[in-house]
Simulated scan of single mutants.
Amino acid sequence: MSLPCAHGGPVAEATLKAIPADFQVFEVMHVQPEGDGEHLWLHIEKTGWNTEDVAMWLAKSAGVHRLSVGYSGLKDKHAITRQWFSLHLPGKADPAFSWPEGLRLCDSARHRRKLNRGTHRANAFVIRATRFSGERAAVEQRLQAIMAAGVPNYFGEQRFGRGAGNLVRGSEWLSGGEAPRKKSLRGLWLSAVRSDLFNRVLAERVTRGVWNQVLEGDLLQPEGSRGLFRADEDSDAGRRVAEAEVHPTAPLPGVPGMASSGPCRDLEQQVLAPFESVIEGLCREGVEEARRATRLPVRDLQWSWRQEREGEDCLELAFVLPTGAFATTVMAELIRSQDPTA
């Protein structure tokens, strides 16, 4: 599905992720290990490793069950990323790890609790767009617009699996087809389907120019919170949305919960009507409806220019996004990606 851009579409072409160093991600934690406890927290830099593969390696190397290993979020394989892991080691000394290629220990400390999913509050990105082709002035103007207004909070294509396979198989399953054979696939397929439905509603709001504006009947979400409130109950809602204090939301469908109303509800129902059987399947599986902000603020956005050895321009970006957000949705408003093998 081609998703409409909010700022007019890409203004330049460049190669993204030519090498892992071109895409770097660092967890921004709001909890730090205290220095004492049964859990060993490890801050690890990884290159060419999936997060789950690192967790499996840690469990095997430490001689513990996989469930004794915790982490906060999944990070890209084809990138340089730094994230925290934890090992439950009651009464045990810190293991003497022999780190393999692609893994490097940055820091370690003990803590009283296991590191659970969603513990970190944000991710900091450093992205290099190489083999740049375009006008610098146009790019910087677009970056100013992104810094001021944010971007639509789309789920990135990685949410849907290779070739959107998780989305295709999940949609078929929920419409009466074959169920996932592995329990681990269930969550991936459900997530892919709900993310696609959210993207479709958001795409319609972008097309109508109301992705960052209040619609009558909207449910709003305060910045940095998962709470919701009805826009119609706040006479100051328009100003608060304009100042990015709160954001409009769109549904992640499932068993009905707190619902929008009026024109907002009409828009959502119009977009989701063709997917009635899929949504009924989500309800049968007991998935509860949730809401997600339609706007993604891009914090601490900075950029610089340099030349590659071949004399080609390179654009380096740094910014911070909340957990659950995708850097690819930011780049889609700016850069049309070239094939790095071309």
Rank of each mutant, 00 (worst) to 15 (best):
D218H: 05
S133M: 12
A62H: 01
M331G: 10
A237Y: 00
W173Q: 01
L267A: 03
T47I: 09
P33G: 08
L74A: 02
L167F: 11
L317Q: 00
A62F: 04
K182Q: 15
P90M: 13
D53W: 12
Q83P: 07
E308G: 10
G35P: 12
G163V: 00
W49I: 06
Q141G: 13
K60R: 06
R230M: 05
H7Y: 01
E34G: 06
R121V: 12
A332D: 14
H30V: 03
L190D: 01
A231E: 12
T323L: 08
G257W: 02
G177K: 02
F319K: 12
G281P: 04
Q270V: 00
V287I: 14
H78P: 02
H43R: 15
R186S: 07
V320I: 13
P263I: 05
L317K: 09
G170F: 13
F160C: 06
G209I: 02
F125Q: 08
A237Q: 01
K114C: 07
K46D: 03
D107Y: 10
G102Q: 06
M1N: 03
R208S: 04
R239Y: 07
V210C: 15
L282Q: 08
S337I: 09
M331P: 00
L315V: 13
E13T: 03
G165S: 15
G311M: 02
C314M: 14
L143Y: 11
A149V: 06
A55E: 05
E316Y: 03
E316W: 07
W303R: 11
R200D: 03
I80V: 15
E140F: 05
F155M: 10
Q307R: 15
D22L: 02
P297N: 08
K17H: 05
W41T: 00
E280M: 09
N116M: 08
F85C: 05
G170Q: 14
D76M: 11
E333H: 05
K75I: 06
W303G: 13
G170E: 14
A59R: 01
S98Q: 13
L105I: 09
W211Q: 11
A293F: 03
H120Y: 13
L190G: 08
H120K: 05
A21T: 02
V69N: 04
V126R: 14
A109T: 01
T328P: 00
H43L: 15
G262K: 14
Q270G: 10
L115N: 10
A342H: 06
R208D: 01
L272T: 04
W211N: 00
P322A: 15
L315R: 14
L188S: 07
G177P: 02
P20F: 13
G286T: 08
W211E: 09
E289W: 07
P297T: 00
G254V: 12
S277G: 06
S184V: 12
S108I: 03
G227L: 14
A14S: 11
E101K: 14
L185R: 13
W49L: 12
P100W: 03
S261Y: 03
Q32H: 11
V246W: 07
T130L: 04
T15S: 10
W305E: 00
G165Q: 09
P256D: 04
M29Q: 11
A12Y: 01
R162T: 09
W84F: 10
D218W: 06
E245H: 06
L188Y: 08
R169S: 06
G150Y: 12
P180I: 00
L42D: 07
P10V: 01
S304G: 15
L219V: 02
A124Y: 04
I19S: 11
A14P: 11
N153K: 14
D266F: 03
S133I: 05
L228H: 06
